[in-house]
């Protein structure tokens, strides 16, 4: 893959944050900043395009491939454009014991999409994830930093209606 042109840039606040992050590792170990920077990038652009990953590579003075191989290893990073709200739904055992599968079926029906898809209006993308370390409050899904716990069909209605406004 040939390297892309510099077409993207962090906002000034994020650039300052990125510099702060890079500076906290020992001399010569700046590659440690990679995951934190990818989070900052995803926060800004919603997903990690090749341009964005190349930008991060330049910032850390590493090869673009070093960024691609890492970004694709970790499930939190989106390699394709996503909707405004990415719903990351826990599909693991303990949540299923609390009715997670039934609520999930309802959510899919309500949104009219399957895992990995985005609604036609671009509002919601649905992703299945594994245990979110909130099993005592299951069923659970996450949208960005926020956890939505104790899900029921009614709660799903409330949340989706609220976010659709």
């Amino acid at each position: 893959m040939t390297e892309t042109q510099n077409t993207v840039e962090f906002t000034p606040e994020r650039l300052a944050k990125a510099k702060e992050i890079i500076a906290r590792y020992p001399e010569g170990k700046q590659k440690s900043a990679l995951l934190p920077l990818l989070h900052v990038a995803q926060e800004q652009w919603g997903w990690l395009s090749p341009e964005v990953m190349d930008y991060v590579a330049r910032m850390l003075d590493i090869q673009p491939i070093e960024v691609y191989e890492v970004a694709t290893f970790y499930t939190m990073f989106h390699m394709d454009p996503v909707g405004k709200h990415v719903i990351e739904y826990c599909r693991t055992g303990p949540c299923c014991l609390m009715g997670g599968e039934e609520v999930y079926a309802y959510l899919k029906q309500k949104l009219g999409i399957d895992a990995g898809e985005t609604t036609a209006d671009g509002l919601f993308t649905l992703k299945e994830v594994e245990c979110l370390a909130a099993c005592g409050m299951g069923p659970v899904f996450q949208i960005r930093e926020k956890y939505y716990t104790h899900l029921t069909n009614e709660r799903v209605d409330e949340i989706i209606n609220e976010l659709s406004k």
Partner: peptide, 22 residues
């Protein structure tokens, strides 16, 4: 340091690799 969503990074040596940006 934030991880990126990978159970295996709880294994201590995988965690260290991850912390090194790999």
């Amino acid at each position: 340091q934030p991880g990126g969503g990978a159970y295996i990074c709880g294994e201590e040596t995988a965690l260290l690799e991850s912390l090194e940006g790999k």
